[in-house]
Amino acid sequence: MALALENVSKHFGSLVAIRNLSLSFDVGSIYSIIGPNGAGKSTVVNMIAGSYSVTSGAIRLGATALNRLPKHRIAQLGVSRTYQNLRLFDGMTVLENLEVCFFPQSWLTFLTGAKRLSKAERLEICHACLAEFHLSDVADVLAGDLPYGRQKILELARAFVTQAPIVLLDEPAAGLNHTETKDMAAMIAGLKREDRAIILVEHDMEMVMSISDRIDVLNYGELLCSGTPDLVRTNERVQEAYLGTTEELDDIRKLAQSRRAQGGLRANAGIVRH
């Protein structure tokens, strides 16, 4: 199954957040979308998931045009996502947060019970998922009471529990510390599968470079460049857009080196947002 954006634009009033963007994603790989703040990364995710309408262009999953469908239909077709700012059901337990994903998807299945998982099956899947994401010990804790890092992981688990073929991750590592980010990267890399496309929006370059099969760089709503991590790393336009001009970059490097010599600052390309 392949997901394709064809000449997609998104306007907010007079602001053009995305301009004529064409991208395609196939199952079996991890794709990263990077770009400076406000480049339009989250907007892309929101448009695919149906949270935002598309101003022009089309988004297709296989042969189906997604951009005309209501949001829940898009999710039913196999698109799941996380949010840039945590959006868990805080007043429900960790287990319940996953269970909800198995709510029967139509009146018919709801009433007849056909194709509907039994409670035991549902719980088995959810517990297996919790184990996979190291959340078993907190299954009965309220999601809102978890520490931030584990909430991020729970949201990740919620996006994967239904085995959706398209998974959109909007800054899964935002706000995590260095070790947590590393764990998160390993976890996501481990989730790569033949029948699944993972689309990752992330500011942490280490993570992006280490786990992506392809990186798409956005700047002011336009595609700047697209390719393997090595290609993107060496692309000058990317460095300029992302980090400033090369001279500025040199200055920053020097500064960082001197700081490191003093034994303080940890170089961090990610911009932490809460």
């Binding site: 907010f12 989250s42 935002y52 309408s53």
Partner: peptide, 10 residues
């Protein structure tokens, strides 16, 4: 709509 609430939240 979701578009505006998301904007307010984020």
């Amino acid at each position: 709509s979701e578009e505006t609430t998301v904007a307010k939240k984020d």
